[in-house]
Structures are given as C-alpha cells and as structure tokens.
Nucleic acid binder design. Sequence first.
DNA 1: GAAAGATTCCTTTTT
DNA 2: GGAATCTTTC
Length: 864
Amino acid sequence: MAVRARVAAMRRRLRMADLPAYGWNALLCQGVWASRGFASMNRLTERHCRNSWDWDSCSPLCLSACLRHAWPRPRWPLERSVSDSAQVAPPLHGGTGSANIRSMSDPFALDDEAPASPPPSRASGPRPVPPDAPWLQGLNPEQFQAVTTTDGPVLVLSGAGTGKTKVLTSRLAHILASNLAQPWQCLAVTFTNRAAREMKERVGQLVGPVSDGIWLGTFHSLCLRILRSHAEAVGLGGDFTVLDSDDQMRVLKQVMAEAHVDPKGTPPQGLMATIQRWKDRAVTPDKAAADGGAEGQAKTLYRAYQDRLRSLNACDFGDLLLHVLTVFLSDAEALARWQGRFRYLLVDEYQDTNVAQYLWLRLLAQTHRNICCVGDDDQSIYSWRGAEVGNILRFEKDFPGAKVVRLESNYRSTPHILAAASTLIANNEGRLGKTLRPGIIHEPEAIEKIRTKAVWDGEAEARMVAEEIETLQRRGEKLSSMAILVRAGFQTREFEERLITTGIPYRVIGGPRFYERLEIRDAMAYLRLVVSAADGLAFERVVNTPKRGLGEAAVQTIHMVARAEQVPLLEAARRLVDTDELKPKARQALARFIEDVDRWRSLLESMPHPELAATILDESGYVDMWKADKSADAPGRVENLKELVAALEEYDSLASFLEHVALVMENDSRADLDSVVIMTLHGAKGLEFDSVFLPGWEEEVFPHSRALAESGTKGLEEERRLAYVGLTRARKRVLVSFAANRRIYNQWKSQLPSRFVEELPESHVERSGERGLHGGGLAESKAAWNDPAWSRARFGQPRRETAAAPSWGQAKPRESAGGFKPGARVFHDKFGNGTVLSLDGNKLEIAFDKAGIKKVLDSFVSAV
DNA sequence: GAAAGATTCCTTTTT
DNA sequence: GGAATCTTTC
C-alpha cells in the first residue's frame, strides 16, 4: 500500500523527540495526510489545530496536512457536471437545466402559457421495439413485465437488491425508444439528489442525450420548477427564494418573538416539526384551524409563520409541495395543463411518499393514468418525516386495474444474508409480504455466515472493525467495497478516530454540508442581499457581520421602521439614515453599509459575477474578518470562501446560483478514491457493498430509545426495517457488533445487546465475543454480567484511561480545585500554554505565552 | 456594544 | 462534547 508506506515514512521522519513539541496529534494528522483528499470533516484534526493556539507550534508536516488536505473542504457538488460532460444538464431546477430543455424544443417550456392541447407527436406514434433491444437485456420475467407494461398504473413491489433502479431506467428507456412519449412528457421522481443523478446517468447510458429532456428530479426540485410559473397564484413573486432549515428556524423564532411566545415553553424546534408534519400532510393553516385539537397556539403560529414567509417572498421545503398542490386545486386550467403534459410518471421509493407527495402524484396521474410506482414496504424508514406506508398499501384502490409486479429475486446478497434479513423482518406485522430468494448462485466457498460480535466498549468496537477492514484489505478487498453503517450521526466519531490512527482512508457521507457552513451562509447572504434588496433575512444576517457597531438595538430600530412603513429592511435602513433615530456612530456605519450594497448592485450588470462576489466579500470586510480571526478554523473558512467564489464560475449569474443552492445542499464526495464509507443506515438505502459493518446493535441505541418512546410498536417496527435495510446492503458479508459499555453524553452506560441480534436466525449466524462472552444473546450476556470485568463497568468504577487519548483528551477540565500553584505551567483551550502567576479562590491569573495575562477559572485550564 | 465566561440544553434519521 | 444561550465584564 503506497499510502501506508507513506505514513510509515512520515512517522519515521517525525522523530520521537519531536513528540512533546508537536503532540500526539501530529501523528494522527499524518494519518489524515495519508488519507488526504477525503471530504469528511475531520474532527481530530480540527481539534488539534484548535488546541495549538498558534500555527507555529504545529509541526510543519501536520500544518500543511491540516491546511491543505484534511481541512474540511467538501467537494463541490456540481464539479462533476461541468468537467465531465457539458451536454448533461445539471440537476433539474430552473437555471441552466431549463435552458437545456428549451434547447430540446420542449413545446411546454417552463414559463410559456402553452395551450392544453396534447403535444404534437413528432414521429408517427409508437414504434415497435425489438425484443433484443439493449435495455431489455438481462431482465428476468418479472422485471420484463414491469418494464414493458407501459399502459395503465403499475405497482412494482421491489425487495432489496431486486433491481428496482434497473427496472426504472429500463422502463424510461423503453418508453422513449418506443416513442410512446417525448422526454419532456416523462416525469421521474426520486427523493434524493443522488438517486436522481444516478437514474439520469443510467438512462443517459441507455438512450443517450435525449434523456436530458426528461423531467427527472427530486419531488422538491420538480415542484420548484413547476411553482416558478405559478408563484403569483400563491402570493409569491416569481423570484421567491427557498429557505433552508436554518433560515426557517430564524423566521419561526422571529414570529414567535412577535407573538410573545416563550421559546422555553414552546421549543421552536418542536413547533417547526409540528408545522412540517402539517405540511407533509398537505394541511394549510386554514385546514389546521378547522382540524380542531388542542394545539391552538401552534395553529396561530403556523399561520403567522406562513404569512411571514409570504411577506419575505420566500417558502420553505414543505411549501414547495404545498403551494403546488394549492395551485393545482385552485386553478383547474393549470392542473389540466400539467396533467396533460405528463404521459408517464415514474416514482422511486414510493413507500417514502408523504401525503402531500401522494396527492401531488395522484393529481398529475389523472389524465394519462400511466403511473409506475416502485417501492418496498419493508424499507419504509421515513415515517418520522411524514412518509405514509399506507400509500403503497392503497395503490390498487386508488388506481383500479393496477398491475402489481413483485420482484423477489435478489441479485445482491448471499443466502445467509437473505435468510437473516428475511427472518428479522418477519417479526414485523402488517407487511405486504415478500420473500426474497437468491437470484444468483454464489460460489459455496465465498459464502460466509453473518457474524455477530460482542465487544467491551465503543473503542474496542472501532478497533475491531478497523482490524477486520485491514484483514479484508489484505485479502485483496477494496476499501470502497466496505461500509460502516451506523444508526445515528454521532456514532461515526469513534470510527473516524480509529481509522485515522490506523491510516485507513475513509469518507463520511452525510456530515456537515458545505452550504451549511457559517461562512458560506454569511457570504451567500451578502449575495442574496445584492441580488434582491428585499431579502430581509439576508440583510439581518450581514448587517453587522463583520462588526460594524450595529448591535441589537440598531437592528431593532430598523425592524420597527420596516414594520411601520411596510418596507423591506434595507429600505427601512435607508430611511433611517436620514433621521436622528440612531446614534451618530451607528448611523454612519449603516450609511456606509447601504452605500456599499448599492454600489455592488450597480455592478451586477457590468461585472462578471464571480469577480463581483469576490469584490463584495472583500470590500465588505468579510474575508478580512476571518483572516484576522485567530481561531483555528479561520484559515479553513477563508479557503471555503475562495471555493465558493470559484464555484460561481459554473453558473450564468448570481441569481441562478442562489437558485440551485437551496435544493442541492448535498455534500457528495467523489467515490473515485479507494476508501471505506461511513454513513447512517438511512443514508445507505439504495446502496450496496461487499462487506457491511453494523456496529452499535444495542438496546437504546438501535432500536433507538426515542423511536420506541415516541411511537411504540410502530417505532420498533420501523427500527427493524432499518435493520433490514442495513443487512440487505451487503453482498458478501455482514458483521454486526455491540458493546457492553458505551459512553453516552459523556457518561458510561452498560448496554444490552439489541433485540435484533437475537432475532437473527441461529443457523445463519456465527456468534462470537470477547472474554468468553460467546453467543452474545441476551441470556448469555446476562450470565456474563457476573464476569468481574463487566460488573466493574456496571457499577460505575472508573475506567482506565485509554492509551489513544493523551494530549487532547485531557485538554478539558481535570481535577481543578487548588491543583495549581504559582509558577505551574498550564494549558488553556483558547490561549494555549501559560504560567500561573497567582490564585484567587478558583480563579487563576495566568501569563500566557502568546495571549498575555488573563484571569481564568481553574476549570478551564489543565496542567501541562 | 462586544467579547469572554458560564450555563444549559440536547443529541435520529433529511429534502 | 458541543451548540446555543445567558451572564458578566470591560
């Protein structure tokens, strides 16, 4: 392994004598360096750099690693679409996407007021397709039926690994090739951008660039496209903005503040969830009010929130669907137009649709009734965001005469895996019921049983998994064929740390997203404000960033004026400058700010937009603010800003850029590097790997205690489906593990193995554990409580310090009271190293080497 | 008005 | 362990 050799060489170069100076993290960072280029957020590195107060104390090696490689710098999501192929349209939302479609002479181009007449069929009707057509090759009889039954509604019940994407793409190809419809008369809808992209690529391979014209995208992106031409019908301007979750919360908090609702009594998050569930069920404020029920306050706030959004000329994710539904239901002509347009509808992951999406689909399918839904009730794992498995169950009722096709031949997993997954999921009630059977014959020697393994704690688990990965690697398995699938995001940390120390390259899918970064959001707020002066949220965000001396009081005043005069914030500020309302200082600062914004706006036409963006960030002092910032992540932020500007090149204008951003918020790292994937079970749906690691199968973790607490049996069944999804991701082997002890919120807890572990069928499972803990079943692990080691942990005795957590692990509080004497050397998270001058109770006066003399509480420093 | 310091929550999954 | 918020201090 070239990488590993490099790590070894690095370790040699960094002499042990250097360790005290550079710290253990220098070593860790080499691991990072070795796995450079991975888009995962690397917390260790981040922490390291934060701990090193100044960059000079960081080893040059490590520094460059942190700065150039390991620093969180996700790949630009759209990078590929430009470099790889100019002819492939980027994901479909307005902008360049629609431009492409127009060039295909779409008679129903987005903003036209096209007649409701059926589109002219260019060729002479359907054209027969030879049975040896490439997209019909390699289909089994059921798949063939699903692909070629083009007339009328079709429900494809497609178990895991039975080739549902193949069916969908072949079906699209078949429709196009048979000339049953033009590309723009086909609507293919998915849930994730990733799925949309994959489908697009695969259809493109089958039928070529014609596929560009297909209306293919996520529910949200397609709705946005539709809504653009009907915005005024729901009280929005055509240039409305789509808010991301952060902005949504801000709006909601403002609304709550205005209504004098105490955020403590009514947590905004909870209220937001309630509102979103309403929207998932297509419940408008009116309907919510008519609903009855006790949440009177929530309804009022819901209405206020919607009003507020409208006045901001904005909508949130849920609104995209809700508004389109409103348009469809209130404007028969528009509805008829869209209904007439889409001759074929294809729906991926139908079991995940919520009520709003279901209504949307049902409306659109009315005219031609050629709707094909593909789904698997056993993989319904999104009920928490409003998905209704019921949609799949009632399909035949809603579409009488629907053809139901079951795909049960699994082409992915070994018989052991299939058997285990089937047995597990059989514990659920209320299933449509499918039995997966092997669709391919596996070589006997390649078949491994599922393994379960009991381990001591989370760290041991991570170590064990890393060792397994190395073993597999030695056997010639590719790292990219392995995945660690966790229940919740926070579980990734332990594995990341372990993989770094081991030097195994990895990627975390799903972590923090580029556009959600503070600096990116700030920068975009500047752009938004320049593009649309009425964007109050953007104004608020940047008016005092960087600090201009416009504090809360000033902003409040601006708000008051805005409300009183019914004008956007920027306009209110403009008026305010001419009055004496503000203190002279604030007034001056505000005047300058407005002047700047005006100047930037005047450049909109003349200056190329990437340059303009750079100018804005520069002249506003925003970049300088970060450059001056001494905190460890500031340089990374400056880098990110540069990337943002660079990314602008790929768009026609600032406006089209901002348009895309709201919906393509993903952080899709490229898979071209050989690396292990770490992701959540939810994120893994639709993917497959040779080897799958399923750690953390412990009660409370998985099934998650909250799922059980909130939705009881239903919650449990959904968790079980999640387990089913996890198992069926694997082609060749699965390793389920669970720890006896786990640190949760910084507290050690002893854990019981998940009930799912027991539900795995004995004959397909090989169980093993540490310390004579064989089997790992509940009964056996209970017996094992008597093992001294286990009971020690159980009764909360202190755990030995782990070897891997020296320097940074203890940067946090230690035994505090009076542990320091004048002259002692100490370390502080922010200020770095220093010498204690004097004590005053628990306050220390410390002369920091770099930061001067400060008074600090003793709990914030640790002895060096 | 701003920053440092202290405290208090929360921790599932995502377009 | 960390984000968000509150309090204190300059």
